[in-house]
């Protein structure tokens, strides 16, 4: 499958359908997998595909230095493909300049704190049923037998990742849950790695950086930490695709994916909205419908 992917990218580069391919390569310490930016057909051997391809490469699509390449080909896993859809629906990427290369994925192994690969899949992958990327220009790889599901079911299950942990969190009393997040947020150092790693956090100036006046305390104190993390979760309502890049990036090991998935699930529960399943859908937060229910505010 790795060769199939390299061949597809080589062809795109040779035909000049793309100026750069953003894929995965062995770029880190001891060959750890991270993003590579390939501009020449001669360099496609740098590209790899395996169960260590953790990053959501969609985060690069809105960066000025990446946009400067011109026509971009991007390698996406099924969950990451949904992030590209959200970015397109929010007018952050020009689909005419984008070739979305979806790879069939049967799960990614999580990284241990020392950066090495653990012998276990991410929680989101354990419960994932979406192995074939949707809404992509081309698909590389075949779904293993027994794993194929129709697209509709896959969309419905799209926020299923992490549900076991979420269910545990929801079973807590309000006090227990508050204590849980209090402990988690007490570790936050306010580096904003979550924001920088998130494809959806593309604002030129984040509300956390506004200082005339200051909107939220910038201190890594409990007050500021609660304000920041809750504010970011709210901004991700109906937008988070559950890729888990925030949790992977967090140096303090805060389970941010659980927080953001909670809000995603609320969008699904109250509005039947799942982010990134279809092009041309208006953002949940940016639209109003006559039949919107209001009970959730009360």
């Amino acid at each position: 499958m790795e060769n199939e992917l390299r061949n597809a990218i080589r062809e795109l580069l040779e035909k000049q359908e793309i100026d750069v391919a953003i894929g995965y390569g062995r770029v880190g310490v001891d060959g750890a997998v991270g993003a590579v930016f390939v501009t020449s057909p001669d360099d496609v051997e740098q590209i790899v595909w395996n169960d260590e391809c953790r990053q959501n490469l969609a985060v690069h699509l809105t960066r000025p230095e990446v946009k400067a390449f011109g026509k971009i080909g991007i390698v996406v896993k099924p969950c990451d493909a949904r992030a590209v859809v959200v970015l397109a629906n929010e007018a952050q990427v020009d689909l005419d300049l984008l070739t979305i290369i979806g790879v069939v994925c049967s799960g990614i192994k999580r990284a241990k704190p020392d950066g090495t690969t653990a012998d276990e899949y991410y929680a989101k992958c354990e419960t994932c049923v979406q192995h074939t990327p949707q809404n992509v220009t081309l698909v590389v790889g075949d779904v293993a037998e027994g794993e194929a599901l129709d697209a509709k079911n896959e969309q419905n299950a799209a926020t299923a990742g992490n549900n076991a942990k979420l269910a545990k969190l929801r079973a807590m009393t309000v006090e227990e849950r508050f204590a849980y997040w209090r402990e988690q947020f007490s570790r936050c150092v306010r580096c904003y790695a979550c924001r920088q790693s998130c494809p959806m956090c593309y604002c030129n100036r984040c509300v956390a950086d506004k200082n005339r006046p200051t909107r939220i305390d910038t201190s890594a104190s409990l007050k500021g930490n609660f304000a920041w993390n809750i504010l970011r979760a709210f901004h991700l309502a109906g937008r988070c695709v559950g890729c888990g890049a925030c949790a992977s990036a967090c140096p303090a090991g805060i389970e941010l994916d659980l927080l953001n998935l909670t809000v995603s699930d609320a969008a699904k529960e109250h509005f039947g909205f799942v982010a990134g399943t279809e092009f041309g859908v208006d953002p949940l937060i940016g639209t109003y419908a006559d039949d919107d229910k209001e009970e959730f505010i009360r």
Partner: peptide, 17 residues
């Protein structure tokens, strides 16, 4: 400098640890 830093998303974790 730009080439080697392309994959960096500027999260700053390096500085905080």
């Amino acid at each position: 400098w730009e080439q080697v830093s392309l994959r960096c998303v500027g999260c700053g974790t390096c500085a905080y640890v």
